[in-house]
């Protein structure tokens, strides 16, 4: 059993509903985000601001935050979710510096780091993560990575850092483009 986010970029409309749903559920500080939506560069998708990576913590197979943390505030659950414990966090930001995906975020107000825990509190209560529930188009889902095979699924879409050693669990389905006619761009 290993939980992972699956983002179907073909369905994602870049609305940021997932990221705001997270702020809504956790009542995050105004500038704080545990999930962010990144428009793809035109070199990757030819229409600017029309395809996206929606990313939070990738709940890596070999998470560097766990090894970087001096206070053992990170734990990896048996189901793959990497949980950060704010109570023991001393705000040293070793994790912030170590994570190649920028998942842990430092709150200057709290003097501590925060991060997506895949809504483990909700999962444990039999509910979907807030971002998944909040995705209006069904682009963002969770899967069991141990037992999920689907055509066209990729681990490293263009624009997403390749980190083979730590092996992020997030998976992606790539976006498509329409055939275009009319006034020449």
């Amino acid at each position: 059993m290993r939980y992972a986010f699956l983002l179907d970029m073909g369905k994602c409309i870049g609305c940021r509903g997932c990221a705001m749903a997270c702020k809504n559920f956790y009542n995050l500080e105004p500038e704080m985000v545990w999930r962010q939506v990144y428009p793809l560069a035109e070199a990757i998708y030819p229409h600017s601001g029309r395809a996206f990576l929606s990313l939070s913590c990738n709940h890596c197979e070999h998470p560097v935050c766990v090894t970087a943390c001096p206070t053992a505030s990170y734990t990896q659950r048996a189901d793959g979710i990497v949980v950060h414990n704010m109570e023991t966090c001393i705000g040293c930001q070793n994790c912030v510096r170590s994570c190649p995906y920028g998942a842990p975020r430092y709150s200057a107000t709290l003097g501590k780091v925060q991060k997506c825990g895949m809504c483990w509190e909700r999962l444990d209560a039999g509910l979907l993560p807030s971002c998944v529930l909040g995705c209006v188009t069904g682009a963002l889902t969770i899967i069991n990575l141990d037992d999920y095979v689907a055509p066209g699924i990729v681990q490293y879409p263009a624009g997403y850092p390749v980190m083979k050693k730590i092996s992020p669990s997030t998976r992606f389905i790539l976006p498509k483009e329409p055939v275009m006619y009319g006034v020449k761009p």
């Binding site: 734990t75 414990n85 483990w120 509190e121 999962l123 444990d124 209560a125 509910l127």
Partner: peptide
Amino acid sequence: PVPARGAPF
């Protein structure tokens, strides 16, 4: 789910 520290929602 796998239990972790802290109470579920």
